[in-house]
Nucleic acid binder design. Structure first.
Lengths: 160, 160
DNA sequence: TATTGTTATACTCTATAACTATA
DNA sequence: TATAGTTATAGAGTATAACAATA
């Protein structure tokens, strides 16, 4: 849907100096919308919101997470995460267990039903993601992974 | 995740064990969270939510959009978009004008204040995005742009 | 009839502030 | 004091359904 127009206009507006990185910036934004929308699509079939789907997928790939860490992963305030987990727990998808070594903290893990839904939706997302990159050469895929990981680790710490 | 050690960004970061595309899928998901979170960060300084910021940025790069098209761009139901634009309009950031050639439709465009905020936040996002990729070689950036654009256009139409 | 958009409704999602309980 | 988490509150965001107006 009009990414040509987008590229042109944004290019004119933003890319002034030598490197014209604007197209890459825009490409990344579009890609990100697309990727995260996969969670919404995958969840819809199971009556899950995008946020619930992201939550399930974030937990299943880690097995067991502290609320604290989960908040950082999902970029959520602790109270927002509380509510999100509350609704998932109320629906029987996950449970909180106290960390006995630090009784302020809680571990979050999936129930059987949670694992079922998480597996399904996670697989859905991965399949669609794989399909999106399937036409790239293996070499391109490997290179892309490396570059993306670099960007992520650079962006994760907002230094300088 | 600590690839700081390597001197060059290309294949080195990725150990080429067989098949496993999971790292790429995961990397893309993490990246997407990071990228879209930039809108939230950029908007916060101006008391804008992530969605309002995305809305402003989507409109400013197009100048003038139909509600219909905007909904597709942002992946929103028409009623959801109605509310989003309502709040932006109520705040004096944009206005709806009737399309006289098709009186069912509306055009959305930014007010002066809307343009100001949109320019600021859009610039913020772009700057941070540029910073995230600034340490890649120019060649890598170009190649990455091409690959990302390929993925996006492949994912936009779910025709496998 | 089909399309473009709004309104009504009922949720979910989110951040801020104040709180409890551990450490 | 500092940290991990909850609760209260208020508002934003979202989808579904029903509706109006135009094509």
């Amino acid at each position: 849907m009009g990414e040509n127009v987008l590229g042109d206009e944004l290019g004119d507006a933003v890319d002034d100096v030598e490197g014209r990185q604007a197209p890459l910036a825009l490409a990344l934004v579009d890609l990100s919308h697309l990727v995260l929308h996969l969670f919404a699509d995958a969840g819809r079939a199971y009556d899950l919101t995008q946020q619930q789907t992201e939550l399930l997928c974030a937990v299943i790939v880690r097995g067991r997470v502290r609320m604290n860490e989960l908040g950082k992963i999902l970029h959520l305030e602790k109270s927002s995460l509380s509510g999100l987990v509350d609704r998932a727990e109320r629906r029987g998808l996950m449970i909180r267990t106290r960390d006995e070594s630090d009784r302020r903290a809680y571990w979050v893990e999936l129930t059987g039903e949670g694992i079922r839904l998480a597996t399904q939706t996670h697989s859905d997302v991965t399949v669609r993601l794989d399909r999106m990159i399937s036409h790239l050469s293996l070499d391109s895929q490997k290179r892309l992974t490396g570059v993306v990981n670099q960007i992520t680790s650079a962006g994760a710490r907002p230094d300088r």
